[in-house]
């Protein structure tokens, strides 16, 4: 329960940074999707169960939607979709390594753009939407990927502290081995 509460608070914090008017690395209104990184990260965690995790992802989506000019359920749907996808994926691949998590952010950010494009095109029927897609996607992807390692390290540090009740040096998490799943408690 503590992890879920902290995740909501982290979501609010990341949303606050993402929507901040003085965000230094935002270029022409294009911002890194920090809350999306959190949702993907939660999807990779074994402590987060599918049901409550999906609810959490939907809630974070509504938070984003409330501040965004898009339709309200857009981000709730997208975050839920990617949380469930990553949750299913973690049963197939070991997504504990930070390098794999960064790769996951890259792939999912690209797919998120495609999904937003398709939903906006389908629902709004905007003309020349592909031009916007072409202009936004590379910049958004570059920004999200640039901040992803830092955000992921921060999130790993927090969740590790929560699960072990001890502080872990920030950068040591880069080279920390994956937990042994076969070990008995």
């Amino acid at each position: 329960m503590r992890l879920y509460t902290i995740s909501v608070l982290l979501g609010v914090l990341l949303l606050g940074i993402q929507a901040h008017p003085f965000l230094p690395f935002a270029q022409q209104g294009i911002r890194p999707d920090l809350v999306f990184i959190l949702v993907l990260y939660l999807g990779t965690r074994t402590e987060i169960a599918r049901g409550p995790g999906a609810l959490l992802a939907t809630l974070l989506g509504y938070f984003c939607g409330a501040f965004s000019g898009g339709p309200l359920g857009l981000y709730a749907f997208i975050y839920l979709f990617f949380f469930v996808a990553v949750d299913l994926l973690k049963n197939v691949f070991d997504l504990y390594s930070i390098y794999l998590q960064v790769l996951l952010v890259v792939v999912c950010s690209l797919l998120e753009g495609v999904l937003v494009f398709l939903l906006c095109w389908g629902f709004f029927g905007h003309s020349q939407m592909f031009e916007t897609f072409k202009n936004i996607i590379p910049k958004q992807l570059a920004l999200t990927v640039a901040v992803a390692p830092g955000v992921l390290l921060f999130l790993r540090s927090i969740t590790s502290c929560l699960s072990q009740n001890s502080a872990i040096p920030f950068f040591s998490l880069l080279f920390r081995p994956a937990p042994d799943k076969t070990a008995t408690p």
Partner: peptide, 13 residues
């Protein structure tokens, strides 16, 4: 006090 968190829409708070 806030800008659109999404890159796809342009709103202000």
């Amino acid at each position: 006090i806030g800008r659109d968190p999404s890159s796809w829409f342009r709103t202000l708070l």
